[in-house]
Design a protein around this nucleic acid. Sequence first.
DNA 1: TTGACATGTGACCTATTGGTCTCATAACTT
DNA 2: AAGTTATGAGACCAATAGGTCACATGTCAA
Lengths: 106, 106
Amino acid sequence: MADDDLVFKALADPSRRFLLDLLHARDGRTLTELESELEMTRFGVAKHLKVLEEAGLVVTRRSGREKLHFLNPVPIRQIHDRWIDKYTERHVTALLDLKNALEEEP
Amino acid sequence: MADDDLVFKALADPSRRFLLDLLHARDGRTLTELESELEMTRFGVAKHLKVLEEAGLVVTRRSGREKLHFLNPVPIRQIHDRWIDKYTERHVTALLDLKNALEEEP
DNA sequence: TTGACATGTGACCTATTGGTCTCATAACTT
DNA sequence: AAGTTATGAGACCAATAGGTCACATGTCAA
């Protein structure tokens, strides 16, 4: 399977995106710790983490019997750069900054 | 289905990503024109375009019997912002700029 | 070394998805 | 009006993906 296909397939599942949210909030967690945040068996979570790791969205490091998981932002940025050039980026960020500002002020 | 789920599901298919590539290169194309670029029947392409449109990745405008398709970069940028904060962005862009520079110079 | 803890593998079932086809509507051209 | 062009809706089938389970390996602590 092509590299980018692995990334997009990995992002296509809501549980996996939630795992990325968890790791974005705090890195270096174990499978068991992440498992407690999802309503799913350990096996399901392990499968999802494996998909994320094979896509390069999550990087791991072993520490004894534990496996620590870290978020890797590089593939996300590459998605961005595929369809948003520097010129367009200025417009889009300005638009979204305005949107966020308006949503914060009631 | 949740908004972000539609976007990620839409991006999960290589044919749909190729359609976005085509629209990124040149906007405002019709179904028939896009169809000629894929090795697939018109019905398949139409289905993919519908998925992209429902996800908000493609915006359309009718002109007589033709339907013109345009790329909308906003959802892409929102994916980016979900997992890459301003601080991380500086590091990642610097890293990727370096990578691209090295690949261009042999 | 014995038991508890943390993770890994592969089979299995069900639900979803990609792609094609038949049928149908609407608009331009002459 | 008639023929052609551009698109739309829904049935259908094969392939894929999400989730659980039984079973297994490696690691820590007493």
